[in-house]
Computed example of a mutant assay.
Amino acid sequence: MMGSSGTESGVRHFLSIGDLPVEEAIELFRWARLFKQARPHLPQGLGYTLAHTTWVLLFSKPSTRTRLSFEIAIRELGGESLFLPFTDLQLARGESMADTARVMGRLAHGAIIRTYAQAEIEEFSRWASIPTVNALSDEEHPCQVLSDIFSFEEKRGSIQGKRVAFLGDGSCNVARSWAIAASRFGFDLIIGSPHCFWFPSPSERVFWTESPWEAAQEADLLYTDVWVSMGKEGEKEAREELLRPYQLRSELVKKAKPDVLVFHCLPAYKGKEITAELFEARAQEILDQAENRLHVQKALLSWLVKKLPSSPGV
């Protein structure tokens, strides 16, 4: 996998949360806060870091928050976006990703890709020679977790040294991105999940338990995600049976720290991975988390084109 420097020409990509050096993440978060503060002052408070550029959103999976937050971010940064479902392209008829990327790289200024295979995003970035963003694959959801860390720090200060508990499908893309982030940002991640969903810990800061109670103990952040990810619909009944004990509910919250935050990356299936009661009680935290995708991705896109503004512009 390529790192943040991307290709030999110096093009930046964001394919994994491991692509962003932590010192640059700190600067990116600072600018995300400034973009958030500036937004009520639009258009005067807008930094046009993507002016005169066109970005393609190449999606093979359905999307609500990812599509909205990226399209609005690009527009508010002065750029244009083209939403391109895989099914509308020659990819659906067998054209290779390499050929698609080589053409798009000559026409567009950046690409945001949401698909099943991580390898497709990596291949596109190799051939297109334009900034490429992983907007979700089966292996990672780096934009989500980057924004989640920002959302935590916005409310509780640095995540370094904190305890994050993920409950549910420990093999999902969000959990995997959290695992990569743990060592880079210096927090402990405890994944409460059935053993069949475990994967090798990428660092000594990632721990596993089959007990949801142990995972929630003294947590600073309780986090859950859907039990049946896109492409796993055929496993729905089996997954729901296995994961039912890991439902995020008020009894588990009581095991965490008194000021624990509750996050869900959405969409939420209330009564399954989280109770409706707890979701509504923590809706403000969860919706703040969803909104922050816009602000963090504005900073991320500006970082990719090496144009973090020199002043907030308000």
Rank of each mutant, 00 (worst) to 15 (best):
M1I: 09
M1R: 14
G6W: 00
G10D: 02
F14H: 05
L15R: 01
S16E: 01
I17A: 08
P21A: 08
E23H: 15
E24T: 02
F35Y: 06
Q37F: 10
H41V: 13
H41S: 11
L42M: 13
L46D: 01
L46A: 15
Y48P: 08
Y48H: 12
L50H: 10
A51M: 09
V56Q: 01
F59L: 01
S60Y: 05
K61Y: 11
R65N: 03
T66E: 07
L68C: 13
F70M: 06
I72M: 13
I72W: 13
A73I: 03
A73S: 15
G78P: 05
F83V: 15
L84E: 06
L84N: 11
T87S: 15
L89N: 10
Q90L: 06
L91V: 02
L91I: 08
G94M: 06
E95D: 12
M97I: 14
A98H: 07
A98G: 06
M104L: 15
L107H: 11
G110I: 00
I113F: 02
Y116T: 04
Q118F: 04
E122D: 09
E123C: 02
S125H: 04
P131T: 00
N134A: 02
L136W: 08
E140Q: 14
E140C: 07
H141F: 03
P142H: 08
Q144E: 09
V145Y: 05
F150L: 05
Q160K: 14
K162V: 02
F166N: 02
F166A: 08
L167G: 10
G168L: 01
G170W: 08
G170N: 07
N173S: 13
V174L: 12
S177F: 02
S177P: 04
R184H: 13
R184N: 09
D188P: 03
I190D: 00
I191A: 03
S193Y: 02
C196Q: 15
F197T: 06
F197S: 10
F199P: 03
P200T: 07
P202G: 12
R205M: 13
E210K: 10
S211F: 07
P212I: 00
D225R: 11
D225Y: 07
V228D: 00
M230E: 02
K232C: 10
K232M: 14
K236R: 15
K236C: 14
K236W: 10
E240I: 14
E240N: 15
E241M: 14
L242I: 03
L242Y: 04
R244D: 03
Q247M: 07
S250C: 06
L252F: 12
L252S: 07
K255R: 15
K255E: 08
A256W: 01
A256F: 04
P258S: 14
D259G: 12
V260A: 14
C265P: 01
L266F: 06
K272T: 13
K272R: 15
K272Q: 12
I274V: 11
E277V: 06
E280M: 11
R282A: 04
A283V: 12
A283Q: 15
Q284V: 08
E285L: 07
E285P: 05
D288I: 04
D288P: 06
Q289G: 09
N292I: 00
L294N: 09
L294H: 09
K298C: 04
A299M: 01
L300F: 05
S302Q: 06
W303R: 11
W303A: 04
W303P: 01
L304I: 04
V305I: 11
P309T: 13
P309D: 05
S311K: 14
G313L: 13
G313Q: 09
V314E: 05
